[in-house]
């Protein structure tokens, strides 16, 4: 518990082009730390989808990544519109993203399901009008 490594990122909401840079950074750090490729890929995909979501829906937010020897915890927090119906949002294909986002290759309603697909644990706390906090855990091995 005591030997965690912590990385913090501000995810800027005004620039779709730079979305994903924090995930790229995490991927590099985990590679340097020698984690297995499968773990690195699952962490970076889950975080990348979360980062894209924060840019699309919430004008950005903050990402914290806690690295333990046996697990990696990703915490994404924003002050966006919140998720009105989490069960609905978790369904593949359900999306509230505008068409403009779909033309960028996202907004197909796969973001949250993908985050769940690649992580062992995922918890969503969301209040409409206040924001959303998503905590994901990827276990090593």
């Amino acid at each position: 518990m005591s030997d965690e490594l912590k990385f913090h990122f501000d995810v800027h909401g005004d620039n779709f082009t730079s979305a994903g840079e924090a995930s790229v950074e995490v991927k590099k750090k985990l590679r340097q730390l020698g984690f297995p490729p499968d773990v690195i890929r699952r962490v970076s995909i889950a975080m990348y989808e979360g980062e894209i979501n924060m840019v699309i829906h919430a004008r950005g937010g903050e990402a914290d990544v806690l690295v333990y020897p046996d697990r990696i915890v990703i915490v994404l927090e924003d002050h966006g519109p919140g998720i009105a119906n989490i069960d609905l949002a978790m369904q593949e294909g359900y999306s509230t993203a505008p068409d403009s986002v779909r033309s960028l290759g996202f907004g197909a309603g796969m973001g949250l399901p993908n985050m769940k697909r690649y992580t062992e644990e995922m918890n969503i706390e969301s209040t409409v009008g206040v924001g959303t906090k998503i905590t994901m855990v990827v276990k090593v091995q």
Partner: peptide
């Protein structure tokens, strides 16, 4: 293979190795 042209195509490829 994609017909989408933006930097996220490259980032997606990076995430998937």
């Amino acid at each position: 293979l994609t017909g989408l042209v933006n930097p996220q195509v490259v980032r997606t490829a990076m995430m998937m190795d």
